[in-house]
Computed example of a mutant assay.
Amino acid sequence: MTPPVFRFAPSPNGHLHLGHAYSALLNFQRAQASGGRLLLRIEDIDPTRCRPEFEQAIYEDLGWLGIAWEQPVRRQSEHIADYLAALARLQDMGLVYPSFESRAEIARLVALREAEGAWPRDPDGAPLYPGTAKTLSAARRAELMAGGLPYALRLDMAAALGRVGVLAWDEHGTGPSGEAGPVTARPEVWGDVILARKETPTSYHLAVVIDDALQGVTEVVRGQDLFHATSVHRLLQALLGLPAPAYRHHRLIRDATGHKLSKSNQATGLRALRAEGVSSAEIRHRIGML
């Protein structure tokens, strides 16, 4: 029987905090208990925020926690060709189109829509794309792109949903409302999600499903904040013919005010806690793993 494959996939855009420690330790413990494998992936597709010193800190902090992972580590920045190939397949299906509005222009369009009534927002609270770039002719799109205008490549959600049936995933953890068992995917609530930008050749959504498939990941253990994103991931897996791992969304570690921890909150950073003399055993105690 093939052993299960888990992964921990942080971004090196800041120091790890207690929430990362919980997720990493949970993956490590489940891999050990099941006789499985634990992979480490560095999600560094954003060159403006990701820095080598943060990547090195990830290795040091995980080692301090007593976590071991397989080598080599997959770094997304070294596998851009994989994401471009997947994007090209979706483009060949006619499921991708460029939009050219700036963030300020999108905000203005949203305000106009909201002046006429409620405008839908995605599960993260961001308004759905309000523009009309999907109606541009192929010639006009090519003209705008050739002119050097910044653009985002979006998934035509309606067309994509027309290619697949009802999608679901096996939830072995709990969603925001306590969901467990089969969960029906609802990617439409995200609207025409961005798959890449002119300056960034892939998005989190596209890269994560490609990485999981290429690495043979069978168990995705991650925070409840990504529960709803799984709907988009299931859609992309179905469109690209990729296997769907089992998903286990775990509770979030929150601060004293009840908010999800952030890398900008140094009080929860593992580096800062280590500098204060906090032990790895105390970290486990603080996150409820002892």
Rank of each mutant, 00 (worst) to 15 (best):
A142P: 02
E143N: 04
L144G: 07
M145D: 08
M145F: 01
A146D: 12
A146H: 11
G147Y: 04
P150F: 07
P150I: 06
Y151M: 03
Y151L: 03
L155M: 14
L155C: 10
L155F: 11
A158H: 12
A159H: 08
A159V: 04
A160C: 06
A160T: 05
L161D: 00
L161P: 01
G162P: 06
R163E: 12
V164D: 00
V164E: 00
V164T: 14
V166A: 12
V166F: 05
L167S: 01
L167A: 01
L167W: 03
W169D: 03
D170S: 15
E171F: 04
G178P: 07
G178T: 09
A180C: 11
A185L: 10
P187W: 10
P187D: 07
V189W: 08
V189M: 14
W190I: 00
W190V: 01
W190Y: 15
D192V: 07
V193W: 00
I194C: 07
L195T: 10
R197V: 04
K198E: 08
K198T: 01
T200K: 11
T200Q: 15
P201R: 00
T202E: 00
S203H: 10
S203Y: 08
H205C: 01
L206Q: 03
A207R: 05
A207W: 13
V209A: 02
L214P: 02
L214N: 15
L214W: 08
L214K: 15
G216D: 04
G216M: 07
V217C: 03
T218D: 06
V220T: 04
V221R: 05
V221M: 03
V221W: 03
R222D: 05
Q224V: 15
D225C: 07
T230F: 02
S231M: 00
R234V: 02
L235N: 03
L235Q: 03
L236E: 09
Q237K: 10
A238T: 11
A238Q: 09
L239T: 04
L240C: 11
L240M: 14
G241C: 11
L242N: 07
L242D: 04
A244E: 09
P245Y: 12
H250V: 12
I253M: 15
I253T: 14
I253V: 15
A256T: 13
A256D: 13
T257S: 15
G258T: 09
G258Y: 09
H259E: 12
S262P: 08
S262C: 13
S262Q: 14
K263L: 09
S264N: 14
N265V: 04
A267N: 08
T268M: 06
T268W: 11
G269R: 11
G269F: 00
R271W: 09
R271D: 14
A272Q: 14
A275S: 09
G277W: 02
G277R: 03
V278S: 05
S279G: 09
A281N: 08
I283W: 02
R284N: 07
R284G: 15
I287L: 12
G288E: 07
M289I: 08
M289K: 06
M289F: 05
